[in-house]
Design a protein around this nucleic acid. Sequence first.
DNA 1: CCCGGCATCCCCCGAACGGAGGATAGTCGT
DNA 2: ACGACTATCCTCCGTTCGGGGGATGCCGGG
Lengths: 210, 210
Amino acid sequence: MRAGVIIVEDDRSVREDLVALVRTDERLRLLGAFSSAEDALRGIPALQPQLIVMDINLPRMNGIECVARLKLLLPQVLVLMLTVYEDGDSIFRALKSGATGYLVKRDASEKLLDALQEVQRGGAPMSAHIARQVVQYFHRSEMPAAEAERPSPREREILDLLVKGLILKEVADQLGISLETVRTHVTHIYQKLHVRSRTEAVVKYLRQSQ
Amino acid sequence: MRAGVIIVEDDRSVREDLVALVRTDERLRLLGAFSSAEDALRGIPALQPQLIVMDINLPRMNGIECVARLKLLLPQVLVLMLTVYEDGDSIFRALKSGATGYLVKRDASEKLLDALQEVQRGGAPMSAHIARQVVQYFHRSEMPAAEAERPSPREREILDLLVKGLILKEVADQLGISLETVRTHVTHIYQKLHVRSRTEAVVKYLRQSQ
DNA sequence: CCCGGCATCCCCCGAACGGAGGATAGTCGT
DNA sequence: ACGACTATCCTCCGTTCGGGGGATGCCGGG
């Protein structure tokens, strides 16, 4: 059976090139193409693809965030990141998010199909140099959260109460501040921890503080 | 300043006796009396009492559960449990939930006021025999969850997905079942873990599985 | 002196959630 | 064969959440 493929790429002409390319390969079946991370998150789960080709540089939510979320919904899916960036940080974050391969855009037209095959065979298409960095990266246990990414003291105070199971209104009463203020703090916490729900925030917070 | 007192007792005549008793003591100020745990939970936080006299044997939610929840909202409040039960298990669960003293009902009329004073002085009004058991109890690290209290395999499967931050709809898609089914499972999980929100459930689950 | 981070408060809105019902069906042990 | 536990699906309803705005005041670094 042919492997289902999804393309996520905001540039229309590039996207159409990729779509055309995938269609030339009889081992692949193109299930769809999206032009934004948000659309991809909504549409992909129902399509149950085996492979995703994801551009990193997307408007609003980037491809790395998008892959991280998709991997929660489709743990089995194989992701090939596509990008113009070659810096180590992007590579790390992409792979950390769950991507299997990392292709530079200028190589896409000639290497995409080979890379997709390699991904399916259990490989990880990328240069030896990058592979080396990857190994080293995973030896470092945790991505050191950037300075501005850490919740402020007040925000941590609120997190502590959320961990206890209090709802927002109870947190407000407890701290003697308004519900709206708590809401704002919580929004900021979500942004800093890159999550979108209380549960995710609490789990991440507990894990970070050992 | 006089210490604010709340009474929670479902039997009207007993409740009125207690109210009258507290009113005779000029060192105390009666802030209110409730006849159910649910009403108490709704009303007490706003009253900010220093002392709570709580009956264990209440309809629906019992006094122990009620105290556990109140303690989340008012960590400073001192609780004196009132009960007809003298068995070790009730005592343990009451104190575990955050109660400071434990008075048998038949002693209430003559010892309540003294007990409230003692609680405020940092004491713990109960017999030496009980105090001994308490010490031993806290040496045992955890209350072994009853057999029927443990989530079923399917429920744990769902908990695992909730820990990852998935919302109910995503869990449903992931498991190939309907949203309603997930909702039912989650309700059962809440009942077994004695919680009322996803956050509480996830935190408790993570802590129980080390 | 201005900008960024922080803390506070407010509004709107749609989606998600939690509680309380009820229902069917399969398994398992007594 | 009967009761329990489990898993599945459903409706109704009020509350809570999360995202999107915007606003003020304080403080500290550049």
